[in-house]
Nucleic acid binder design. Sequence first.
DNA 1: AATAAATGTCTCAAATATGTGACATTTTAT
DNA 2: ATAAAATGTCACATATTTGAGACATTTATT
Lengths: 185, 185
Amino acid sequence: MIAETKNRIVEAAIETFNSDLSAPLQKVADRADVTRRTLHRYFSDREELVAFCEHEMEVSCKKAMITAIKSSSESLAQLENMLYAGVDCGAKYSFFHKLHQREGHNHSKSNEDCVDYDFIYKSFNKIIKDLQNEGIIRKDMPISWIQSLHTGIISSTVNVKDGSNLNIEKIKEFAWTSFLNGIKK
Amino acid sequence: MIAETKNRIVEAAIETFNSDLSAPLQKVADRADVTRRTLHRYFSDREELVAFCEHEMEVSCKKAMITAIKSSSESLAQLENMLYAGVDCGAKYSFFHKLHQREGHNHSKSNEDCVDYDFIYKSFNKIIKDLQNEGIIRKDMPISWIQSLHTGIISSTVNVKDGSNLNIEKIKEFAWTSFLNGIKK
DNA sequence: AATAAATGTCTCAAATATGTGACATTTTAT
DNA sequence: ATAAAATGTCACATATTTGAGACATTTATT
């Protein structure tokens, strides 16, 4: 199927570029189990592929995060679901973050993708502040640390998921337990 | 100074390759503030540079970790110092891990570097098991998760260190607090 | 100041990566 | 079973990266 193949290429590209941005397209093609020629039928050049990946990540992560936020009116449940959403997005989520924090990135209000990023970022901050005010989360930890811990635990979880035979749902529980205990009062 | 330049190239290479293994050598040279020609005077080709980086990471991380382990006879203090050691090693530590876990890597007892990696890995496992038996750390979390959380928190800490104005010693304390509370009973 | 050591500049050949045309083979849909 | 769509194979031109020689310039040492 055409959409299926395109999707596989994009997934392979995100996983590959996440740890190796300059990787030759042959590596992406191999990972997607297609020929380099086929890859070029979907994306005329590297730039187009990267751009599509970025957009795909934005859309996908934004959707998952917003679903997580709207899943409940309880801050704690929202936070938990945001963690799971990050894990489910896998490599997309770390690459998504990298792109918005890398040196060359010009973060601006006018860039539509940055608006989404800001929305998620601000929602996260609000949730943390609320939980701090409710006396659930420690007030001595800066939000920047909690934010960083959140993404760090997400990538840990994704790594374990890919490299061990543990049950994914169990790992997610451990991740949430470790994260919450790591920041709660 | 010659040793100084070589060192700068290696540090630049580690930082660059950590997030972009296939990055052109020009990027490494730029980051090290030397010409590509100079880089090639120290390392005849890419392979040699990567090999030297690997060795440098092994030596450096191994040294820091062993110092941490020998810093105390208390398991808890050892664990704490291993976390700080990882943070101090920075990009070296994450790259060090990546190299030993990547697909192509043929991990063998005969490879001297792998022996060191195994030593650290086994020491870490022993510390965790001891703390579990002492009733300090939860027994329901698999060591693979704890191991992964450890490296995840180290990279979170390195990220915050590079991207915020928070005091590094304070961040390290938060990291240790979050890590310990995340796994303790 | 003279010398040696280190680095930079410019150049170039070889290797690798990129993008595409032409056509064969396989897969999918009718 | 056939036509259409998708993918693979091979070939090729172009672009980029790589590694090194020759010599100029800068930096350190005495």
